Simulated scan of single mutants.
Amino acid sequence: MGNREDLLVGAKKCLYERGYARTTARDIVAASGANLASIGYHFGSKEALLSEAVIESFEDWGTELRRILDEATDPSIDTAWRSVTEFFHSQRPLLLASIEAFAQADRVPGLREQLARAYERARLALAAPLGLDEIGEGDEKTVRLVGSFHLALVSGLGLQWLLDPEGAPNGDEIAQAMRVFVDAVNRAGAAAEGGAAPEGGAPEGGAPEGGVPLAATAD
């Protein structure tokens, strides 16, 4: 690797061990084996280097999350969200570093735009393994909405796990809550149309007992 790559590797190591706010230029130099002047030469500033390291870490985080969802043997909310909550345990340091970076989005030039692009890629990545054949794979707007919905859940759950891991819901509890939510939406829709939802919850053709398809949340 060259100095630029070494600096990025060192910066990501510092993000994991020290976080975004506490990492200094000298920390990065010590972790990368590069010299202090190379930070300015390759990135312009420590903040710009850390911003790029955050984006790369964010991409790595998303790739791993996508892999977990792709490898789920049961394509249901239960299995997927159980895997996501377990994932937060191993990725807590980087999750915390990303939250610290978000707080700097208006202060570090270009960081907001970089994060926005990373979020857009995350929306599409989260939508891909969610059983979209049931809601129309060719409908780009719907695909993006489903990805945005699940990204909002991932982001919110991540904050809960950072602040209150004991009180944060586990995968099974999230699945149960989503069943209640989907059932309430279906009943409200039926009432608005002058009809009534079938006894027992979701309408005909809805979620099977024992596992709600992830794509059902797009209704």
Rank of each mutant, 00 (worst) to 15 (best):
87 F>Y: 15
87 F>G: 01
88 F>T: 03
89 H>I: 14
90 S>P: 00
90 S>N: 08
90 S>H: 13
90 S>Q: 13
91 Q>R: 15
91 Q>T: 15
91 Q>C: 07
92 R>W: 06
92 R>M: 15
93 P>H: 06
93 P>E: 04
93 P>V: 00
94 L>N: 11
94 L>Q: 02
94 L>D: 06
94 L>Y: 12
94 L>G: 05
94 L>A: 03
94 L>W: 07
95 L>T: 11
95 L>G: 11
95 L>S: 08
95 L>Y: 06
96 L>F: 08
96 L>R: 14
97 A>R: 01
97 A>Q: 04
97 A>L: 03
97 A>V: 08
98 S>D: 11
98 S>K: 10
99 I>D: 10
99 I>C: 01
100 E>G: 04
101 A>D: 00
102 F>P: 01
102 F>Y: 13
102 F>W: 11
102 F>G: 01
103 A>C: 01
103 A>Q: 12
104 Q>D: 14
104 Q>W: 07
105 A>E: 13
105 A>I: 05
106 D>P: 04
106 D>L: 10
107 R>A: 13
107 R>D: 09
107 R>C: 00
107 R>T: 11
107 R>F: 10
107 R>S: 11
108 V>L: 07
108 V>Q: 00
108 V>D: 06
109 P>W: 08
109 P>K: 05
109 P>V: 03
109 P>I: 07
109 P>R: 06
110 G>P: 04
110 G>E: 05
110 G>R: 00
111 L>R: 10
111 L>A: 03
111 L>E: 01
112 R>C: 02
113 E>D: 14
113 E>S: 11
113 E>I: 05
114 Q>G: 07
114 Q>N: 06
114 Q>V: 03
115 L>Y: 00
115 L>I: 15
116 A>I: 04
117 R>E: 15
117 R>N: 14
118 A>W: 04
118 A>E: 06
118 A>Y: 02
118 A>S: 14
119 Y>Q: 13
119 Y>C: 09
119 Y>I: 11
119 Y>G: 09
119 Y>M: 12
120 E>F: 00
121 R>G: 02
121 R>V: 08
121 R>H: 09
122 A>C: 08
122 A>F: 12
122 A>R: 09
122 A>H: 10
122 A>W: 03
122 A>Q: 14
123 R>C: 12
123 R>L: 07
123 R>I: 00
